[in-house]
């Protein structure tokens, strides 16, 4: 991504598969974009969809969640619950006025270094296409209210 300003992307990765996968990609010296900051979680089932909401509202431009493949969860069923929650949350985004492409969830196992590289690269490109996340501007909001009240 040379010549392009970095954007802020946060990744929530499960400890057992995707974090290992990202590590494998690093050990294998696979080139990856550097926009992503990783937060290690015990399991994708630990990831509250509201983590994603809070992250997007607090300054991130994109959020990536990755866990073990379905049927491969270290805790047997954490990612099954996660899948339902995250899918519901992703579908709420259009109504919030946030592009649903700013949030993706996927599954990467500990041995899939290559797949991790593809996921990170694709997602980073996607966020760069969308650009920085729009923000509520407190200043403008005040001006709008004042203008409305004629003050």
């Amino acid at each position: 991504m040379s010549g392009v300003n970095e954007l802020r992307i946060v990744g929530f990765l499960c400890n057992w598969c995707s974090y290992g996968g990202a590590d494998a990609a690093g050990v294998g010296r696979l080139a990856q974009p550097t926009d992503l900051r990783i937060i290690r979680m015990p399991c994708s089932g630990r990831i509250n969809p509201l983590f994603v909401a809070r992250t997007l509202l607090s300054g991130a431009d994109g959020v990536l969640v990755s866990g073990c493949h379905p049927r491969d969860c270290h805790y047997a069923e954490g990612n099954f619950y996660a899948r339902r929650r995250l899918e519901v949350f992703k579908r709420l985004l259009p109504t919030l006025g946030i592009d649903p492409g700013r949030f993706e969830y996927t599954w990467v196992s500990a041995s899939e270094g290559q797949r991790w590289q593809t996921v990170v690269t694709t997602f980073t490109e996607q966020i760069h296409r969308l650009g920085p996340m729009p923000r509520f501007s407190p200043g403008e909001a005040c001006v709008a209210v004042l203008a409305e009240s004629g003050g």
Partner: peptide, 10 residues
């Protein structure tokens, strides 16, 4: 999309 975002800001 921008109109939806602006709606909620408003």
């Amino acid at each position: 999309l921008e109109a939806r975002f602006a709606h909620w800001q408003q």
